[in-house]
């Protein structure tokens, strides 16, 4: 099987939500069969590394196998949150797409749909 390294965005989707200075980001495999692969590769430690430049102090990962989803809870990543952040996006709503862009995974090439920009 030919494997290919792609950003999560190629094979998964997600959504970010805020509570104070804490952000949660869900990561959901388009194909539920890919869930074990995400579970193995999308670790809390890798997510913490991606967000450490914004002051993230801890990441907890919750697994939801029936939904083919992971939920990451990232502490102190919102630079104060809506209470104090100077970021245009104080809620961190756009952070789901930062994770989908920067966390890469190795997946079977055949998992990417025909015409996916990530095949180029």
């Amino acid at each position: 099987m030919t494997m290919i390294e792609v950003p999560l965005h190629a094979v998964a989707h997600g959504r970010a939500g805020d509570k104070g200075n804490r952000c949660n980001i869900s990561v959901i495999a388009y194909n539920p069969d890919l869930y074990p692969l995400l579970l193995a590769q999308a670790t809390a430690a890798r997510v913490l590394k991606i967000f450490s430049f914004r002051g993230a102090s801890d990441v907890r990962r919750y697994a939801l196998p029936h939904l083919g989803a992971l939920n990451f809870v990232i502490d102190d990543v919102l630079e104060g949150g809506v209470n104090g952040s100077l970021n245009l996006d104080g809620h961190g709503k756009a952070l789901s797409f930062l994770l989908l862009a920067e966390l890469t995974v190795r997946v079977p090439r055949a998992e990417l749909p025909e015409g996916s920009p990530y095949l180029l």
Partner: peptide, 28 residues
Amino acid sequence: TEQILYEMHDPANYLTPDVTLDVTGVRL
């Protein structure tokens, strides 16, 4: 699925005054 996990932290313990919700067994 995206909305189930929206603003949810521990999916086994979503706290409300009426019930502590556990979505880890949810199927769609």
